[in-house]
Amino acid sequence: MSDIIAIDRVEGAAAEIMRRASIQIPRDYKDGIKVMVEEETSELGRFVLQSMLENWEAAEDDQRPMCADTGLPRYYVKAGNEARVEGGFVALEAALRRATAETTQSIPLRPNRVHPLSRVDHNNNVGIHAPEIQYAFEPDGDWLDITTVHKGGLFGTDYRMLFPGDGIDGIKRFFLDVMLQHGRRGLACQPAIVGIGLGGGKDTCMRLGKEAACLRIVGEPNPDPEIAALEAELTVLGNEIGLGPMGYAGRSMVIDCHIEVGFTHTGAMPMSVHSFCLSSRRATARLFPSGEVEYRTDPQWFTPFYRREGVQ
């Protein structure tokens, strides 16, 4: 039996998760919205959420994207330490770029990716640093996990350098600022999974917050009880603002809050906030050397190893 993951399997699985992510709303998110419909006090807010439930059904029935702004497609690759890919990682990246271009045409996705200055659009969502491909590793295992996330990019995200003296109050205040500035008129397409990055350098802070929003599922708290308590508190706070779907008065703002931390500068407490929208597009494939592929909607990105704190 082969001990190498075939490259055509990689391309096929990447195309399949592109399709699934754009068309099928993850179960955890949909179930969360069903609860929020029941709890929403405003009639217009309930109409909006009910329309979204109908929209997801239409997307699956017709096999068309649930939203036309199909975001910025990107990949998260996690490799078991024993995993080997035919052609190596250069071949892997080429396969992911091909899958992006091919599915942009075949699904179709909106070709959102353009050059920031010339605005040149290759109509395939591929370009300089596009799609992004990020890596993580896991001890043991000969498998390869490929996750795609199609997150919208215009609203709902912000970063701020806070300091230890700002404390938990500073975190709450900046959280409220972001919910309000992008929640009005529903620019953030709430209710959203709100991901918060705390600590790290600025880039790590942004990365952790984005991963918290896009790679953890609704209803899964951080394993650190202190962080989990803050997640719960911010979820309640967000839903007490009085902003509902589309910024109409209501209470459905935060479907879940996920916080991820990274060790940071002794004088700092940087914070990033990211809103993953009403079309929370994510899908994962696990590829084995046998050729077998398993699909799921939980990326299982955050593992004890990924969050490790010690030297080893």
Partner: peptide, 27 residues
């Protein structure tokens, strides 16, 4: 509504009549 009910709105499109300036402006 939503935003956005992309699939429901997509269902409502019966025909593409034209795509003006497609080459100049992109999809």
């Amino acid at each position: 509504v939503g935003y956005g009910t992309g699939a429901l709105l997509g269902r409502g499109i019966r025909e593409v009549v034209d795509a003006v300036w497609l080459d100049d402006l992109g999809i």
